[in-house]
Structure formats: C-alpha cells, structure tokens
Nucleic acid binder design. Sequence first.
DNA 1: CTGAAAGCGCTTACAG
DNA 2: CTGAAAGCGCTTACAG
Lengths: 351, 351
Amino acid sequence: MVKNTRIKDIAIRAGVSIGTVDRVLHDRGEVSLATREKIQQIIDELDYRPNLLASSLASKKNIVFATFMPKAANQDNYWSKPQHGVEKAKNQLREYGVRIKQFYFEMEDSSSFSAEAEKILLSEPDAVMLAPCAKREAIRFTQKLDERKIPYIFIDSILPNTHPIGFVAQSSYDSGFLAAKLIDWGLGEEGVILLIHIARELDNANHLLLREKGFLQYFEKKSSNRHRLLKMEVSGNGEEEIVRHLADLGINPCEVNAVFVTNSKVNQAAICFKNLCVTPKIIGYDLIPINIALLKEGKIDFLICQKPEMQAFQAINLLFDHLVKKDKIKKENFTSIDLITRENINFYNSY
Amino acid sequence: MVKNTRIKDIAIRAGVSIGTVDRVLHDRGEVSLATREKIQQIIDELDYRPNLLASSLASKKNIVFATFMPKAANQDNYWSKPQHGVEKAKNQLREYGVRIKQFYFEMEDSSSFSAEAEKILLSEPDAVMLAPCAKREAIRFTQKLDERKIPYIFIDSILPNTHPIGFVAQSSYDSGFLAAKLIDWGLGEEGVILLIHIARELDNANHLLLREKGFLQYFEKKSSNRHRLLKMEVSGNGEEEIVRHLADLGINPCEVNAVFVTNSKVNQAAICFKNLCVTPKIIGYDLIPINIALLKEGKIDFLICQKPEMQAFQAINLLFDHLVKKDKIKKENFTSIDLITRENINFYNSY
DNA sequence: CTGAAAGCGCTTACAG
DNA sequence: CTGAAAGCGCTTACAG
C-alpha cells in the first residue's frame, strides 16, 4: 500500500492533536497564530491531500443543489436529455452527501419561470444549475442569486452581465460557422442556400441569432463566394409555412441546394422538402428521435450535436468540485461541436 | 440525510452480527445454510448496496493492473495519448487502492513485445489492459493470460479468437466508410480518389485493412458511382515515395481530387501535395500535433478521431468496475467516430 | 459456524 | 486555544 499523508502524520510532526490540525485545515479558527503557522508549513511541505472518502464518510453534512431547465413534454423532447445527465450525477454523488432538487419551467410561459424561480429561492439550495432560456427572467433570477450569494452555473447557453461560477455550453457562433463550412464543402462552386429559423420568440433566443451570425460570417470571410444566401423565419406551425415563405422570396423549392436550420426543429424543414420530393442538402441540430430517423433516412445530412446529457452532468460535477472539493474550477467549458451523419450515429455516445 | 441500508441494518433484521452478514455478502463461506438464506433474502429485499467509500477505506487490499501498449517516442506520438488516459485513471483510482504498472513495447520490434509480456506475467497483475498492435505476439500473450485466468481488456483494436472481458475501440470499418461518405459529399459527381496506406507491416495491422474495406464498400454500395478509385501502399520513408507511386499508376498529381490516408501518417501525404502545390481534399486520422497544424493550415480537410486518452481511461475503469465493484460490464465499447475540421478543433475535448 | 473488537482517515461535539 | 473520544460503514483478524 502506498501511504498517503494523514492528518495524524501532520499532528505527530507538529506535536499537536488531530483536532488542531483539522482546525487549520478547514480554517475554522480557534488556533493560536504560532501553531497555525507551524501546522500550515507542515501541510505544505508534505503536500497533504485530504482523503475524500474518509471525509464524506465521517461527515453527516448534506449539500443541496437545485437544477432549473425547461420541462420536457416527453422523452422525445430535447430537454429530457439534460434531465438524464442530472439523474446520473445525482446517483453518483449520492454517496458523497449531495442531494439534488429538480425544478422546471414551461418554455412557452415565462411567468412559470419566475414562479418556479421563487420556489428555488425558498428552498435555499447551496448552489444552482440553470439553463437560461428565457433571457429576461433568467437575468432577474441570477440577480437574486447574486444577492443571496448562492453560486450558480449555466448549461446550454450563456447570459451576458451575470456572475456564474462557470458555464457548460457550445459556442453557438462556431457551430453556425461549421455548418456553413460543411455546406460550402458539399455544394461546390455555387448554389442557393437557405437559412431557416424555426422559433417563437427569436429575439429572446440569443443562441439562434449567434448561430446565424457564425453561418453568415463564414461566407463573408470567404474570398470568392458565388453562393446565393436566403433567410427566413417561421413560427413552426406546419410545413406549408416554409413553402409559402419560399414563394414570397420568389424561389421554387427545387432551386434550393442546401438548407441550414438553426435548431432541433430541422425535422420540419426536412419533412417539408421530403413531401415536395426535393432533396437539398440539409443541416440542423440535435439528436432527438425524429431527427435521428430523418438522418438515417437520408433526409437530413448532418446534425450538429452538443451532448446535452453530458453538459448537465458536467455542470453538476463542477458545482461539486467547487463547493465540496474546494477546487478552483474552469469557468468556460465549451462543449465539442459534434458532427453526426447516418454513418457514425450508431457510435455516438451521450457522455 | 437520506439513509442507505447498512450492513448493520441487515444484521439487526436477521438477528446476527455484522460479521456474519459480511460473510454472505462476500460469499466467503463458514455460514450455515439456514442463516445464509435468511440473510440473503433480507439483502435482496432491502436492495442493499455496499458503501464503496467505507469499503475501500476499511480495506487495506491493493489491486494491481498492468497496462501494455507501444512506447511513445515523444509527446507528439499518438501513443502518448492513451498513456495520459492511464495516468488520469491511476490518479483517480488511487484512493480506492488501485495500483497501475505500465509496460511498453517497441512498435518496430515485435521481440520486445514478447520480452515485456513475460515481465507482465512475472509481476502477477490482477488484470491487464493492452493494445494488441502486434497481432501474432499479442495472441500468444492473451493465451497465457487465459491460462493464468488473468482478465484482460483491449484498447485501440480487437483480436479475433481471444477472450477479453471487453474492449474499447473504434470500428475501423465504419470509420473508413464515413471517410468515403465525406469525400463523396465533397467531390460532387465525379473525381479521382486516392487511398494511401502508410505502414510498415500492413498484413500485421488489421485495422488499416478494415478501414480500407469500409472505404471501398461505401462506393460499391452506391448505385451510380462515377469516381475513379486508386490505391497505393508506401512505407513512410519520405514524401517522394508517393509521387513515384503516382507515376507508376500513370497519374499526374494534379489530377487527384481527394486523398484518404488510413492512419495518422496523413501528414506525409498532406505535405507531399502541399509541396507539389496541388490541393486535393484530404482526410486522415488522429489529432497528433503535426496533423493539427496541417488541419489548421487547410492542408488537411478532416481528421477522424477516436479519443485515445478516453479509451485507455475507460478501459481501466471497466477493469475496476469488473474486479472491484463486481459489476457486469459492457463487453463491446465502441468509441465514437469523431469528425474534426479546422472549424471545430478548438472545442474538441479528449474526454 | 458466529460474534466482538480494532481500525481505515476523517468530522464533530464536548470537556477543559 | 487544545485534546480526547465517539462515530461514519465497512473489513479483518481473532476468539470461541
């Protein structure tokens, strides 16, 4: 057995009891300056690392995290994925005395955000993990967390002018940029490219705008660009909406060579073109079941993924490292920008 | 505090001491059939899960894993990556009483494989993780492990007719298939495609042949294929070798539209074409520094990656789950087939 | 075949 | 300000 230094070893070297060592270790006062310095020196010298196992075994303390994200209507919904990540972290950190309370808000109803946020504050958690989807409400909530000095971490996306201990999210700009590159690579010299936003409140959904920005900038940066770029916004009520907007643009569907949809609703565009018997190259986001089916069918070419299960799992673990292990954690945790096709989807792992 | 069932709870319910409960828990005999059955029933009923923390804290037992893979000449070498994965697992499992001894063989010299393998057997490890690169020697080694009933797990690739408890590796066939799809998507209607093997002993490197197979079958399955496929094998001594082989095939370098190299030596092909001032689309494998540089420079278009650090890390953890936690582990652990471009490389994580 | 006791490294009152 | 002791859930000899 390779022996690690124990509290006891430090105590012996310092000629004190382990209780005193523990006091300087956890900085809970009641130690004379002289002995404190002496002990600290030995700690540094021996490079002492506490045994986390023994520590959480002995401690009866519980720590409570609250998680906050949109409610997933069913298993097929995107938001059921981060939920799984939370469950996994929950099971794993259970034996370390971590409890997790999950809270949800309705995507469509921002008042439910504020109501649930109030419940979270009442429950007095030690830390919060949240997906700041409703921008305005989320900012108000983080201000209250700041006041109460409750640390929080973001998943999925980021909010400006807030003070989280960190975030786990994908760079929206760069994912859009990559989508553009793929389309450029697949299209050859020239073609008609259609960017579609399928969203209710585009102005309150910052990451979709960033994806668009990255997408457009790719082509702007390209020296010689002979593609024709079109853009449309639809609310997501039926596929004929897309056809109508195309008509407004004076475009026949069969003229479209490539389509980029800025979120997981790419299936609506894919089905639209499928019904029209037109086959542009189509790129969108996220591995929800309907998208997977269309990918395998060849109606979607690429899905850009961001391991939402892992984001939540990692965020919880970062909170744990920060609060329990007292590690200094990395603040910016960018998720990889994964490219999924029908050829590699069967090997894609959530974690 | 949510209370988990403890040995003590079972003991009380059964009206015995915790020592006896421990005996049936670890199946170490010396218990009458009657009490054993009674206790077992209570265990099942309460769905008892041992507290791993307390268990490894109390146990002074050490468990030793041996790892075996090609020696990495330097940090830039592919094999330094799995090595990092091993280090990480080592640090993490240390407090659970796991020790790891690392052994290496020379890629070029198969006799070093056998010599080191002998050392591993002498050290009598509890389990072995190995990269079975030298096919013939590796098979002989696994036979000896089988005889001694030492469990082993593969990383990187798989060997037929062996009995590992599992493997963590990428499907070579499917990665080749995906490479073909990318080239097909990027090339449009027609083009000259060159497949290059850069390897010393191609017949002893099964996975390269599988990558080729997947690549070729993609085009065979395609209904209408107007691409022209060429193939060459070079030993990897200088780039002019590729030019010479092209001449032998009667091809002018500038006629080549796309290149697929079946391993991490893709940088040699990329540099070759760069020097010729020709810019075919190039796809290869693995994020070693020189490949990364060429990718960023635009001289390589895609790198297919397989998280080698993670493979080793995961394999060690599977051994731990199998031997220490006594979990039934998943045997086939296929790594994802990751697509890296200059646009997403900065966000790619090793784990 | 079974139980009682010591100990793993740490935390937590409590006594002085 | 400091120390001694009990306890977290489990393992490991040892006594009977």
